[in-house]
Design a binder for these strands. Sequence first.
DNA 1: CCTGGATCTTGCCAGTGACAAGATTCTCAC
DNA 2: GTGAGAATCTTGTCACTGGCAAGATCCAGG
Lengths: 212, 212
Amino acid sequence: MAYHHGNLKEALLECAADVIAERGIEALTLRGLARDLGVSHAAPGAHFADRRALLCELAKVGFQRSLEFMRAGAEAAGPDPVARYRALGRSYVQFAQDNPSYFRAINHPEVEAHLDDDLRGARAAWVATLREGVEVAQASGWHPEIEVETLLAFSCAAAMGTAQLLTDSVWTDVFDVDDVDALADSVLDVVVHRSRTSVVPILEETEEKRSA
Amino acid sequence: MAYHHGNLKEALLECAADVIAERGIEALTLRGLARDLGVSHAAPGAHFADRRALLCELAKVGFQRSLEFMRAGAEAAGPDPVARYRALGRSYVQFAQDNPSYFRAINHPEVEAHLDDDLRGARAAWVATLREGVEVAQASGWHPEIEVETLLAFSCAAAMGTAQLLTDSVWTDVFDVDDVDALADSVLDVVVHRSRTSVVPILEETEEKRSA
DNA sequence: CCTGGATCTTGCCAGTGACAAGATTCTCAC
DNA sequence: GTGAGAATCTTGTCACTGGCAAGATCCAGG
């Protein structure tokens, strides 16, 4: 076997995503990843200063990929600004369901407490896209009486909250529903405050499923 | 010094809340708590099987206290069902801001992944109260066209998402606002979909401030 | 070839959680 | 009271983790 692993950094990120998806973020250890990949226990140190740095990188990638997916969802929703806005949120929830590891990394306290310029940039880009969606929707007549910043905060809160609620069985169990996807659709309809007549298509995903 | 600490369990929970509020949940260690309280490193083991058990207990207390605070808020909001519903959500956000340690415990993945009957009961009671608020509000004419379960999920998501957003500087920094409380009020107004004419009073809290 | 940098290994240390065995204190039936 | 048993706490130990340091190996460019 080659002394160099070849692409250890990528392999670490991939393996970490698998571990998180299967056994949760608390079960993620640098030494465990090293064992899984057949390298020495200090090898990850060459690519990630510490555990937190790896999680931050995962979160950064998570923001980027979710953003891509949200934009694709908006594109698939057609020209109507409100439908596009709804698709942004719906796609984010879908992404969270399909990629629990990235979603958990994004929302993990250890990641949020850390200041990382790249990560902050990724988060800002995410919010900026949502802001644009809100602005365009509002320009087309959607809730003109509400301040943009308020609508943006509401949108972020609704997206994050819905995603957290519907990706965790601890919460879905307390609701009297069987079809989580349908509930997500309904909740998103309440968020955009429209009748349930037009449901935008949801793209198929993704990372977790691909690696499975 | 007495061999028995007297009330180690309570002291551990209190000390844990302080540590979480000051340095985050990741900095919480059983041995560290033992040192702070001047007992041996294995003393906490008599009251909590492991770190997770302590976090679950904190989360349970968090649900109970937040629920008390929400009910008090609803009571203070007067007889109007929609105003009471709004007060439930607004009070929860306020509680999260005033008691970050409990809020973080409630939403920590390590806690959510664990099955604990007491904790599950506390969570169920929390959801039940919100459900009752939704039902009464709907009975008074609020959004009769939407299914109860959908409104409930939307309400939970909005409350949790808003709380998470407004208690974390990582998120508040990306918004163009200075008054977080005013933003919380505005967002809650969007949630209940009312004009910003009547703002219910917010009770003073809290746990963290008391212990500070 | 050979030199510097990137990558990886081995070895080490302190801190943590968890367990076991024993000491101390409390509770309560008798 | 008093003695048995439960609750509480201590000491000791082990495996595991993160992090650091020093050195070995590989790679790229002059």
